[in-house]
């Protein structure tokens, strides 16, 4: 219940999703019993659920799937990614990547998300001849999958993407093998980084980090910061966005 004596939309939506804890569910149901306003909203939401599931879902799902497929298919082609230079395959072999955890990056259609000032870092993967899909916590990647990167520098001028695997091996993915971060072509737009990494046969987890800065930073300094703390690396002038990955056998 909020300070104004009603259930918030969030609480009502979570109740419908059965995502509240048992005590929260009891509290919410108890409130619904005694509050006409909230009961009305709960009833409306359930009516919308029925309407959505009976009519809207079936009518719109094909369009949604087509849109999603088109957007994913366009990811790698837009970047003109040239999958795998042999050297990158070897580097990835030394790294072993795969699936992300943690809260989602703050990208997306920026006009609707409305965030400014936060650099973002997203990963996408491509498996065989199938389409491109975003790498999320529930997605396990396989050896041979290829991963690509998308960033929004939010004004930062320099970028370096690196990884540190479970054994602590540090590799620079972008610019591949660089000793220092490189200037970005456009500091205000979302960028799809050229190139991609093909995952090797090593299974396990590792972290990939995008390091944004106003001045060029040395890869060695970034490596030291990651070794000091992979969860919360710190380096003067650097803004880190960390992703964790796991790779499993198909």
């Amino acid at each position: 219940m909020n300070a104004r004596g009603h259930l918030s939309s969030e609480t009502i939506d979570l109740l419908l999703l059965s995502a509240l804890t048992a005590p929260e569910t009891n509290d919410a149901k108890q409130h619904l019993d005694g509050c006409e306003d909230c009961r009305t909203r709960w009833r409306e939401l359930n009516e919308d659920k029925q309407r959505f599931e009976q009519f809207v879902f079936a009518r719109t799902l094909p369009k949604v799937e087509a849109r999603v497929a088109a957007e994913r298919g366009g990811f790698f082609s837009r970047f003109k990614l040239k999958f795998l230079v042999p050297a990158m395959v070897l580097a990835a072999a030394a790294a072993g990547v795969v699936f992300t955890t943690g809260p989602g990056t703050q990208t997306e259609d920026d006009a609707y998300v409305g965030i400014k000032g936060q650099p973002t870092f997203e990963l996408f993967a491509k498996r065989g001849q199938s389409g491109v899909f975003p790498v999320g916590p529930e997605v396990a990647l396989h050896p041979g999958d290829r991963i690509g990167f998308m960033v929004n520098p939010a004004g930062s001028k320099y970028l370096l993407v690196a990884s540190q695997d479970g054994a602590g091996v540090f590799s620079v993915y972008h610019p591949f093998g660089a000793q220092v971060s490189q200037p970005l072509a456009d500091v205000k737009a979302k960028l799809e980084l050229p190139g991609s990494v093909e995952l090797d046969a090593t299974l396990g987890s590792e972290r990939v980090v995008a390091v944004f800065s106003e001045e060029p930073l040395k890869a060695g300094e970034i490596e030291a910061a990651l070794k000091a703390s992979t969860q919360n690396p710190k380096l003067p002038g650097a803004r880190f966005v960390v992703r964790e990955f796991h790779k499993v056998a198909p």
Partner: peptide, 9 residues
């Protein structure tokens, strides 16, 4: 379509 990436992660 716009929110999919976020809810996946």
């Amino acid at each position: 379509v716009r929110v999919l990436r976020h809810i996946q992660s």
